[in-house]
């Protein structure tokens, strides 16, 4: 099989497996909504304040919801032996991993980004600002999926790993958060957003290039 064909095949398989276990994908979304609900309840229902906080809340909720979803990235395939077979198949490990990152992003992160539309009614966020926020969330969630794939692969065999996940991912995510905030600030003041947005995209592309190599290395380590 050609590499491109193999890649397509991997994506297809991930979506087919996902279609058989639909209930799993609802959980992060419900968690995301719960975090959104917690904020107005804990700081009070004042519209001006909520409006200012909305982008930050969207980002925090996304990070928390993804921390719930990330440990599942490789665990199932590791336990039923599918990963081992894949790595024995002779295809490059980074190809396998990047297919998984993309399917994970489409299955878990994309719904979360769409759910962030709830910020518009809940936090009286303007639609125009939400659109910018959604762009930063799209990039940021891709970046987080890349970083998370490394962490998830490192912890795939470990029983005590769930608490460590946040410690591994969050410090590395901080640059993305900073540039996303800068983008939102610029958009809030009607300034051009291209500068910080492009840096965020560059970080994402960099992570998408480097992370699969590290992830493949980490998986090989755990497969022994």
């Amino acid at each position: 099989m050609m590499y491109s064909q193999f890649f397509k095949h991997m994506l297809q398989r991930d979506f087919q497996v996902a279609a058989t276990q639909k209930h799993e994908f609802g959980l992060p979304i419900i968690f995301f909504i719960l975090v959104l609900v917690l904020f107005p309840l804990s700081i009070g229902p004042e519209p001006g304040l909520l409006n200012r906080l909305a982008p930050a809340v969207g980002w925090i909720a996304l990070i928390l919801a993804m921390l719930i979803a990330l440990p599942r990235m490789f665990v199932e395939d590791y336990e039923n032996g599918w990963l081992e077979q894949l790595f024995l198949s002779g295809y490059p490990g980074s190809l396998i991993v990047s297919a998984r990152i993309i399917s994970f992003w489409a299955l878990y992160c994309l719904p979360l980004v769409l759910t962030s539309f709830l910020l518009v009614p809940f936090f009286s966020l303007e639609i125009k600002l939400w659109w910018v926020l959604a762009q930063t969330l799209l990039c940021g969630s891709m970046l987080m999926a890349c970083l998370g794939s490394v962490a998830s692969a490192l912890l795939v065999a470990s029983r005590k790993g769930s608490g460590v996940m946040a410690l591994l991912v969050v410090p590395l995510l901080i640059p993305a958060l900073i540039f996303a905030t800068a983008t939102m600030d610029a958009a809030g003041q009607n300034l051009p957003i291209t500068g910080p947005m492009f840096i965020l995209m560059a970080l994402t592309i960099f992570a998408l290039t480097v992370a699969p190599i590290a992830t493949a290395q980490a998986l090989k380590l755990n497969l022994g």
Partner: peptide, 9 residues
């Protein structure tokens, strides 16, 4: 993180 990761194996 480095330290915690080592101890989770």
């Amino acid at each position: 993180g480095v330290f915690a990761l080592f101890h989770s194996f």
